[in-house]
Design a protein around this nucleic acid. Structure first.
Length: 469
RNA sequence: GGAGCGGUGGCAGAGCGGUUGAAUGCGCUGGAUUCGAAAUCCAGUAUGGCCUUCGGGUCAUCGGGGGUUCGAAUCCCCCCUGCUCCGCCA
């Protein structure tokens, strides 16, 4: 959520932000509703103040008269009674006026809040303006010494690549038909060494974050309330993408949603809290199962392990003080952790600066990390795929957008400090999402005979196994 | 699933229809005392919104929502949540 005050002071910044992000939000209506509400609120509060003052005076009077009434003779009672009625009538009349104003405010608020929640965080000025993923800009790329970007897979390795689909079939690593039988389209079953490899990469990524980068490991809920989805910024915009469990109809007090990323659980931990500044930054890592409906992706990436409804992901999150330069540094650090991981796996990859149109509502900046996947992309004349980058990671810098929604704050100056409470900044980045990351691993580590070498870094997590097939 | 008891400020914990935004204690901040410290004493110490001539004013908030009342932390209803006991399951 953006700061309504900031919007009032500089609406142009947000209007431009919407344009850059290619998001249509009616800022004018929002400002109009906000002005209306404030005017009504001021009126109402003035009346309330008068009412409060009055009832402070009438309270004791009524008490006195009530006492009198008890001891009064039947002759005097009606007179006292009418006095009480009269005293009561003045605040009662004000109450009607206040209620009328309140119902006017209540009429405005739902629309105002709905618009406010959908106003995107303006992108940072150094994010290139663009409309689609085609406008994203490559920042850098890395490959091990034995990989030449200018050459095809075959020229690099001396044999034609098999796609991960072919490799999985060859070694009986994935069972799609049975996955679909159980759970419908985009479902799969990882078998044997594929499941071991899946667990190995997750464990390797998780351990690296904990042991080398000082992140605190967490297990968080993946089945959450709507509040957590709204708080983290996935709702209302991404409602279609989440699985919805209708508990209300079954007698529950609220519905539940399956999270599409561990970010929701991690960020939800400190919702509504005022954090101790001396304990910041908080660095959390989780491994969790992620659920995505992939609505609107019909027909896209239907084959293989690329776009699936359920997967597991190691996710990192950093929560720190509201300081742009610190946020920027964390962002770099978090990408550095991932690059370190990919380098130790010897996976060719690149950093891709997402353009404004590809950022999503909640990010000021987002950088994707894409791994080279030899089995993707167009085919050459001989029917061999020419390879393509595929997104495997996404690093987001959100400033206070998420923490404002989550009401997550800290007090500058520490406990007992004099500063006013301030919304924290938050960032998140994938560490490893599997099985998608298995695609580049299987394809890059395949040998001429179709066997797959286990990446050295993962061997310890595969009980010493060095080869598949 | 049934029964009972709870949810109050950073924490602990009173209040159970009328100057109670809330006693008291702890913690924290400032000051006094001291060569310094401990101890003691004094003062201050919730969050958010709106208005502001920037001195302040004002409204809301005692788990959440609704209701009763001139007036609700306090009474009623619904929901969330914690604990204890019983049942059920592992």
């Amino acid at each position: 959520m953006i700061d309504l005050k900031a919007l009032r002071e500089n609406p142009q910044r947000f209007i431009e932000g919407c344009a850059k992000k290619n998001v249509a939000v009616d800022i004018d209506t929002l400002l109009k509703l906000d002005a209306q509400r404030r005017a009504l609120q001021t009126q109402q509060e003035t009346l309330r103040a008068a009412q409060n003052k009055l009832s402070k005076e009438t309270g004791p009077k009524i008490g006195q008269l009530m006492g009198k009434l008890k001891g009064a003779s039947d002759v005097d009672k009606p007179a006292i009674q009418s006095q009480i009625t009269e005293i009561k009538s003045a605040p009662a009349k004000m109450k009607d006026e206040i209620n009328a104003l309140e119902s006017q405010i209540a009429q405005i608020e739902p629309e105002l809040n709905a618009i406010l929640l959908s106003v995107p965080l303006p992108p940072d000025d150094d994010v290139p303006v663009g409309t689609t993923a085609d406008d994203n800009v490559e920042l850098s790329r890395w490959a091990p010494d034995d990989w030449d970007w200018d050459k095809s897979f075959e020229a690099n390795k001396g044999f034609k690549p098999r796609t991960h689909l072919e490799l999985c079939e060859m070694h009986n690593l994935v069972d799609y038909p049975r996955g679909v039988k159980i759970a419908g389209s985009r479902s799969y079953i990882l078998i044997g060494d594929a499941m071991r490899l899946h667990q190995a990469i997750l464990r390797f990524a998780f351990d690296t974050m904990i042991n080398e980068h000082g992140f605190t490991p967490m297990s968080v809920p993946v089945l959450v309330r709507e509040e957590a989805m709204v708080g983290t910024g996935f709702f209302p915009g991404g409602r279609d993408q989440a699985y919805h469990i209708n508990e209300t109809e079954r007698g529950g007090g609220y519905d539940m949603f399956l999270t599409g990323t561990g970010e929701v659980g991690l960020m939800g931990i400190h919702q509504d809290e005022i954090l101790d500044e001396s304990k910041l930054p908080l660095k959390y890592v989780t491994v969790s199962t992620c659920f995505r409906r992939e609505a609107g992706a019909a027909g896209k990436d239907t084959a293989g392990l690329y776009r699936i409804h359920q997967f597991d992901k190691v996710e990192q999150v950093i929560i720190d003080v509201a300081d742009e330069s610190k946020s920027r540094q964390h962002h770099k650090d978090m990408m550095g952790f991932v690059e370190g991981l990919l380098k130790s796996l010897k996976l060719p990859h690149r950093l891709l600066q997402c353009c404004t149109g590809d950022l999503g509502v909640k990010n000021a900046d987002m950088i994707d990390i894409e791994c080279w996947m030899p089995g993707r992309g167009d085919e050459d004349q001989s029917g061999t795929p020419t390879g393509e980058f595929g997104e495997t990671h996404s690093a987001s810098r959100l400033y206070d957008y998420q923490c404002r929604r989550l009401n997550m704050r800290y007090r500058p100056g520490g406990e007992g400090g004099k500063g006013t409470t301030t919304f924290c900044h938050s960032l998140n980045n994938t560490v490893a999402a599997s099985p998608r990351i298995l695609i580049p691993i299987l394809e890059m580590y395949q040998n001429a005979d179709g066997s797959i070498t286990v990446p050295e870094a993962l061997v310890p997590h595969m009980n010493g196994q060095t080869k598949i097939g």
